[in-house]
């Protein structure tokens, strides 16, 4: 079946099976490989994107349900070649090591800061609680976010 949605500001049209997950559509059909597959069960957050502005695990979103909605990935945060402050600070503060969790982590932080520009440390930790990172130990990620909101 055909599904149309807005991807990072541009309308796209894809042919999908009803049971296809958004992660696969983005990666296999639309070439958005920043969206990672770490578990496909909603546990790791590596596949996280914004769906109509809300953080979701794209591995749990069936492709047809996205019809008419808007999807934002890390690519969508780059405006006129300028990367988002979150992308900048995570890099500068060593909030990324192997990088596999990073795109999902960026989106979780984006979702937080969109709603709450001055989060406390506890709020930051709660906001990234669905994004597993096996490398950094989270501390550097928290510091990166604090550097933005301080």
């Amino acid at each position: 079946m055909e599904v149309r949605f807005v991807l990072n500001g541009t309308e796209v049209k894809v042919d999908v099976k009803p049971t296809a997950i958004l992660t696969d559509i983005l990666r296999d059909k639309l070439g958005v490989t920043s969206v990672k597959k770490g578990c496909e069960t909603g546990d790791c957050g590596a596949c996280a994107v914004l769906l109509d502005g809300e953080l979701v695990n794209s591995c749990l979103v069936l492709a047809p349900t996205v019809a008419g909605k808007s999807v934002t990935t890390v690519e969508g945060l780059i405006v006129n070649g300028e990367i988002d402050i979150i992308q900048k600070r995570l890099a500068e503060y060593h909030g990324t090591q192997c990088g596999y969790c990073t795109p999902g982590m960026v989106m979780a932080i984006k979702a937080l800061l969109n709603k709450n520009p001055k989060p406390s440390e506890a709020e930051i930790r709660r906001a990234i609680s669905g994004n597993l990172c096996r490398c950094t130990g989270y501390q550097k990620i928290v510091e990166a976010v604090q550097s933005i909101t301080a």
Binding site: G45, A48, L55, V56, A108, N131
Partner: peptide
């Protein structure tokens, strides 16, 4: 319960 993304969906 769950995580932010799980609670959103």
């Amino acid at each position: 319960m769950g995580t932010p993304a799980i609670r959103n969906a």
